[in-house]
Every structure is written in structure tokens, then in C-alpha cells.
Design a protein around this nucleic acid. Structure first.
Lengths: 343, 343
DNA sequence: CTGAAAGCGCTAACAC
DNA sequence: GTGTTAGCGCTTTCAG
């Protein structure tokens, strides 16, 4: 298969009449090697087209310049942006990225964590399920000296760094805005409550109501309504069962999208007949008719922060763990501007 | 750091009063090991919570169940979908995915290819730049026994499998459709011609004109117009310099998006005043006002095909190389339906 | 069916 | 500043 036998540090040593150890040290810029030797070694490496065997180095040192990233799905705007930044930042420090999708399956996640441990990655950046087995696996990773940074969906009681949004305040602010616009019967389209992010967003929704002096109606709570289809179904349910709902706060943009299209088809006007706000500021929210209010989570920044934090933790001992909260930005659009629509 | 010392096959062997070789074989289901021994070994592995050191195994065998994926950017719909499928398919076969972004820099790409080679990956799935140095690096990977599958932007004269779209026919069909709608002065917004995909799309644009008996106007060719901003600039240029352009075929959706928004602001009506078609069927195209005609490339399928092909090549010797063409689907939308708009 | 022994390529004490 | 030596954990001939 190979044209020429693989060249190793032994070959370099032989050519230079020195030893593999010296070659290794020279290549790694060891301080106690003479500049002259370093130059000779590097020249010879170039000449023979020497390529270091990273695997051998990893085995010997027990470390590797690899970081694993575990997310539910790569092809969601939020994650693909976060991963984009993570790869960019880590590549600057010559780290490689191993990427894994759980599809929200705790079993898959556990398996992936184990695989990463066995690959001897130096760090894991993860948006986690909360299954007990996963927490144990993450703890095992920590015990093995692997640094972990959690983002998005996190397990609070693990001693790791976090990077997260202010989901509670964000949701509260959005719902407050809706209440102030005159929507007083706001449905909640919500993701799985097993995840802190959806729990927080729901809490924000409830807190806004409480502060405004309105009791949130339990019948207006749509759990597991988190994608386009589920959003569409919930919207149809709302249309069919005159519940008195005059607005929807959706903890995800896709459910809002599904609802938006159903309302449009049914001739129900947004924002006049029903208000609608999503979450995540997916690109399409800007272009819907009308454009829908959403919340930008700054996913690129989140990825960059997570990457730089894990870099510090991997390279400098005693780097303190950080809990970083990235404040999102409310993007007000036509879909909740009832007052403006009236005027 | 670790709670307990790492357990190795030696530990298992000692406990079972056998040898590391037998343990290794048992764990790998070697046929000449008795079922009884396999059971004993696996039970003990479980009991001691043995975790194989993949790195050691990789060093010894010179292989690894890792595939590298190299793309310009992760956070484009096309690539994030392709990668989504790639990871899904490879994970089924217990392969891990290392992901790399070139940001369209040939130097970065070359560095990444080398890193993957040195990591001893078994395969590389790549959307490549065409720089000479990169081709040499890919050849080096092939020489090292690494399987390569190219998709999207490919280097034709390398002996690898390809997975691609029928960009030429797709573009030709779209432009034909526009010509038939009565747009006879169609501008071309185009990506870098160093890439086969944009060359092919341009060729399709030209072929459609030729077949229709109209000469394509050189002044209507906008090279390096491939993102939102460039598209907006080109649109402004078109507005300012009365060139007689009555439609735009853009080889990418983002440039079409930029143009669409500029036209809207300028009060220029799509499709009445100007026709507009994009390429890639980015999610937002469906929701623009009006929705814009585009071309769905089936990126998920492309990723899945690339992944399964490389799996075969890695696992079965003498797997033939495949050149798979995935036919895209034209998505006709309002932005090019001049006749319908008239009626 | 199992054991003995060697070694993948590199690094890091420890010498001098 | 450089050489000697041992070994990371695993697999795989070769022997029996």
C-alpha cells in the first residue's frame, strides 16, 4: 500500500548518528537540546518527510490533543454554530475535535462518553441528557482526568465548568413583553421538562405571569411540543378547541414555525388574532410572514467560550471552574407587536 | 486523579490465571477461544470495569475506527446535514468522527489532512479545495492506506469514490425554466470558479442559454457573489446600473437572499420585475417573501451514501470505487413564476 | 485451545 | 547536551 516504509524517529536517529530519544526531544523543542541538533533533526525530518505517529505519542503520554463534543444533533442551527466555533478555537491550539450525536438517547450518550474516555480524549464539551447512568459516566471521565465543559443542557451537580444562557430571565422577559402587549391568555409550547433549559424557560413564563398578577392556565401548557410537527398539531388543537388562547410562547422556534403555518392557512392573523414568540432565533424566524419574535442565544459565542475554557483547563493545572452565563438578546418582531398592528 | 488504577488486560489475566494474549483474544471474540473462557473473561472485565485502551490497540494494529471529515464550514445547512448523516451512519458501525473546517483555506486544509493522517484515521470524507498541495496530501493519505470519499467539491483525478450532485443538469434545468418563464436576461451570481461545483453550475447556465438560442451576456456574470452581503451588493449594482437584467440565477441561496432583501427594500417586485432562483434549498428559501425557487441537493442522503461507501472500503478489501450522482430536486416557488404572477 | 515473546513508535526517568 | 533503558497497553505471530 505505502510507497515507502513509514519513517520513524529511529530512522532519523540512524541517519544522524544519534538516538531516538534525542530526536524526540529535538522535535519537541526540549530545552536541553542544542539548537544545532534541533536544526539538524528538523532538517532531516523534512528531508525524509517524517510524520510523527500521534497515536504512539498518545499511548506513551496517556494524553491526546483531542476534545470530544457531544450534542443531541449536529444539524440544528444552535449546535452547528456552537460546534463551528468550538472547532475553530480548538484548531488554533492544534486540538482535534471528535463529534458525537446522541439523538437525545441516554443510552447512546453513555456509550459515546465511554468511547471518548477509551479514546483518551483530553476534554469533553457536552450538552447532556440527565440520565443517572450518564452522570456516572461523566464522573468516570472526570476521574480519568478528562476535563468537561457543559453547555446548553447541563447536569448541575457535577464539578465542571458551565456555559449557559439566562433562559429564565430570557423567557420571563419575552412573556412579560407579550403580557404588556395585551396578550393575557398565553399558551406555552414546551420541550421536555427533564431538561433544565426547558424547565427554566417554563419557570420564566410562570414568573412573568406571577409578576403581572395573572395566573397561568394549566390548560394552556403543551408539553413535548418542540418541533415543527408538534407545533402544528398543537396549533390545530387550539383552533379546534376554542380555549380562549390569544398568544403562544414557544420554547423552540420549530414549534412556533409549525404553528405559524397552520394559523396562516386557517386565516388566523398574527399578531392581531394570536401572538407568537419562539426561542433560539433560528434563521427562518426573520423571514416568516410575519417575522416572529425570538431570542438569540449567541451560539457561536457559547461555543467559543466553552472551547477556550476547556483549553485552559486542559493546559493549565488548577484552572478554576467557571459558570459563564451568556445573556441572550430578545429579537422583537411583528409577531408579538399587537399594539403596533392595531395602530 | 483516578480513583483506582486503570485496569488492563494484564489485570484480567492475573485474576483469571491466564495470559494477556488469551484475554485479548477472548475480548475480540477470536474463533479459537473456548466459549467458556470468553464468558469468564467477559464476566471479569465487567466485574473489574475494564475499559479497553483504544489508543494502544490502534498503535498495535496501525488502524483506528476513526473517520475524518473535512468541510469548509460546519454551520452551513448543506454540510451540517451531511455531517449529521455521516456521524449517524458511522456510529452504527462503531466508528468515531473527527471533524475539521478549512474555512476555504488551502493551507488549513493541507494541515488538517496531515493531522488526520498522523492520527491514523482509517478514512477521510472530504469536500476539498483543489490546491496542488492538497492533492498531494490526499495522495499521501491514499498511499498510507487511508480510504477517501470525496463529496461536494471534488478533485476528479484522484482514485477515490465520489458522491456528488448533478450540478450541471440541475442548473441547466433551473435556467431553462426561467427562460421559459420569459426571463431572457438572466444574471448569474456565482461562487469561485476554482471549484467544480460552481464551474458545473455555470456550465449549466450557459448550456440552457445555448439550447434556448440566446447568448448569455458576459456583463451579467457576477463572480465571487456567493454570500448574503455579496448578493446584496450585486443587487444594488444591478439596480444602479440599468443593465436590462430581468432575472438572477444564483449558485447559492445566500446571495439570492441578499438580493431578495435589497429588491424588496427598493420596491422591485419578485417575480414580476425580476425573477430569482437560488441553489441548495436552504430552509429560509421557503419562507422568504416571495418564497424563492431553489434546488434541493439531498444533503442528508449524500452524507449517508458517503459514509456507507467509506465503511465498505475500509472493511472489505477490493471494494470498487463508486462515483455516485445524487440527483437533486428542483423546488419551484413563486420567485420565478412570472407567468403565474401575471395571470 | 492457550501461552510465550516480541514490538507498534514514542517519551521520560535516570544516567553521565 | 545526549545516550540508555524501560515501557505505555495491546495484538499477533509462532509454538505446542
Amino acid at each position: 500500500m505505502s510507497k515507502e516504509a513509514k519513517v520513524t524517529i529511529h530512522d532519523l536517529a540512524r541517519e544522524l548518528e544519534t538516538t531516538p530519544a534525542t530526536v524526540s526531544r529535538a522535535l519537541n523543542n526540549h530545552p536541553r537540546i542544542s539548537q544545532k541538533m534541533k536544526d539538524r533533526v528538523k532538517a532531516m525530518a523534512q528531508k525524509l518527510n517524517y510524520q510523527p505517529n500521534i497515536v504512539a505519542s498518545n499511548l506513551r503520554t496517556g494524553k491526546s490533543k483531542v476534545v470530544g463534543v457531544i450534542v443531541p444533533n449536529i444539524n440544528r442551527h444552535y449546535f452547528s454554530n456552537a460546534i463551528h466555533s468550538i472547532e475553530n478555537e480548538l484548531a488554533k491550539a492544534d486540538y482535534s475535535v471528535m463529534i458525537c450525536q446522541t439523538s437525545n438517547s441516554p443510552e447512546t450518550e453513555q456509550k459515546l462518553i465511554n468511547t471518548l474516555i477509551n479514546h483518551k480524549v483530553s476534554g469533553i464539551i457536552i450538552s447532556s441528557n440527565k440520565a443517572k447512568a450518564n452522570i456516572e459516566s461523566l464522573q468516570k471521565a472526570l476521574d480519568a482526568g478528562i476535563k468537561i465543559v457543559q453547555f446548553d443542557s447541563i447536569v448541575e451537580n457535577l464539578p465542571t465548568s458551565f456555559v449557559r444562557n439566562n433562559d429564565f430571565e430570557a423567557s420571563k422577559a419575552t412573556v412579560q413583553h407579550m403580557l404588556e402587549q395585551g396578550y393575557h391568555n398565553i399558551a406555552l409550547f414546551c420541550g421536555r421538562l427533564s431538561s433544565n433549559i426547558y424547565r427554566d424557560r417554563r419557570a420564566g413564563y410562570l414568573a412573568a405571569h406571577k409578576e403581572y398578577g395573572i395566573e397561568a392556565n394549566d390548560a394552556f401548557f403543551f408539553e413535548k411540543t418542540n418541533n415543527r410537527q408538534e407545533g402544528a398539531e398543537a396549533a390545530r388543537y387550539i383552533i379546534d378547541n376554542k380555549l380562549g388562547i390569544d398568544a403562544i410562547f414557544s420554547t423552540g422556534d420549530y414549534a412556533a414555525l409549525g404553528a405559524s403555518l397552520v394559523f396562516k392557512e386557517a386565516g388566523i392573523k398574527i399578531p392581531e388574532d394570536i401572538g407568537l414568540a419562539g426561542y433560539a432565533n433560528e434563521p427562518f424566524t426573520e423571514f416568516l410572514n410575519p417575522p416572529i419574535t425570538s431570542f438569540d442565544q449567541h451560539s457561536k459565542e457559547i461555543g467559543a467560550i466553552a472551547a477556550n475554557q476547556i483549553l485552559k483547563e486542559m493546559e493549565k493545572i488548577n484552572t478554576p471552574l467557571l459558570d459563564t452565563i451568556v445573556k441572550g438578546t430578545m429579537i422583537l418582531r411583528e409577531s408579538t407587536l399587537k399594539t403596533k398592528a392595531k395602530s
